[in-house]
Design a protein around this nucleic acid. Structure first.
Lengths: 209, 209
DNA sequence: GCCGCGATAGGGCGGAGGACCTATTGCGCT
DNA sequence: AGCGCAATAGGTCCTCCGCCCTATCGCGGC
């Protein structure tokens, strides 16, 4: 269901941080990370993600070096510190399907992951913007996509700890009956049975704050 | 309650990724981020975090430059790509309280944040390891710290979507009565009233999987 | 040896919550 | 004009949940 990705970067803070951030996006799942090119190769001998995210600058074996050895089995996106044309050219030559600066916003990275997962290429800097726009929205679950605005509001409140029918009704300025109706509709769409499961789903789908 | 921090780094992927990763630690709260030194200064004119995390290499105004202007109001930890003594020396001179490589593991970063929040200094590379060790454990809420092992197991199951008394009893191989007793104890300790709120707390406290 | 407490289990009681059904209003699309 | 649907609200029924109280067993500490 979700797009399964692997992240390779030698800086733990970026690697683990990005892993957590991407994992929290409903349609993206980080299944493993690697601290250098060799680790990445070892990893890919065992598992096959849908998309690989590689940093260029890494000890032992660089991202570009790793890609050359892989010959593009799973599509790869190269991320780098200083986005220069020379690096972009090298990445493309090594078989990368995408190229992004580490300064790119996370929604762009998510869109890029969806793009290459769908078989598109993001190498031409000019064309990239258009392609990304077509992959902006996260691919939510069937049920989650069917949620109405009011249902999302209610879920968001639930996920913030407002659990009783009375409190929910007060916060939304509607009757307790309507709260129960909305909840029943949510249970139906998400295929769950109670408020506790609704909280789990709300947080998994990123419906909170 | 939680340690309030601000992150300054020009690379969005590191900045936002790290923000999300740190925010998920129960006793750490990321209240804002900045993309360069100037933004950081603007931010600190408005808000006062407990700890600042700054990258050295940033456009417009470097991390070191920003620290010099701040004169160490909130304690700062400098993070950098290539951990060299020259940079460590400069960071110390600019008033930094800590110095870490971006390759440092996240638990070390969390421990470093707790250390400087507590008023300690992490500049001597040799002494750092000992100090970090003393700040390994996350500072949980009063109530959360009082949870017993079995109560955590139950919470963890709840947070994974097992919500009915019957299912919980089956998964833990205990009677439904005991499940209710454990739940009542959890409600008491966490000052909540039902399963939905328990799920919210479980996830906030990182008790899941 | 006993106290405290974690883990286990039972009973009763009242209310909240979930399932099922109907109904009205207003909006947008055809 | 008519359809579909989101948002609102009401009703009934019965289960399950939260609350209060009691009780046993075994372990570790004072």
């Amino acid at each position: 269901m979700a797009i399964r990705i692997v992240i390779a970067d030698d800086h733990t803070m970026l690697r683990e941080g990005l892993a957590q951030a991407l994992d929290s996006i409903p349609d993206i799942e980080v299944i493993a990370t690697a601290a250098d090119g060799r680790e990445l190769l070892t990893l890919l001998a065992e598992i096959t993600p849908d998309v690989i995210l590689v940093d260029i600058e890494m000890p032992r074996l660089s991202g570009i070096g790793a890609l050359r050895k892989l010959e593009g089995a799973p599509p790869a996106i190269v991320v780098t510190m200083h986005s220069e044309d020379e690096q972009r050219r090298k990445a493309a030559a090594a078989g990368a399907k995408g190229f992004l600066s580490k300064s790119a916003p996370l929604p762009d990275l998510a869109a890029a992951i969806r793009s290459v997962a769908a078989g598109e290429e993001l190498l031409d800097a000019a064309a990239t913007a258009d392609i990304l726009d077509r992959h902006r929205q996260p691919i939510l679950d069937e049920g989650a996509a069917a949620l109405t605005g009011r249902e999302r509001e209610l879920l968001s409140l639930l996920a913030s700890g407002v659990s009783s029918t009375e409190d929910l009704a007060d916060r939304l300025f509607i009757s307790q009956k309507t709260v129960k109706n909305h909840l029943a509709s949510i249970y139906d769409k998400l295929a769950i049975t109670d408020r506790a499961q609704a909280v789990v789903e709300a947080i998994r789908l990123g419906i909170h704050r």
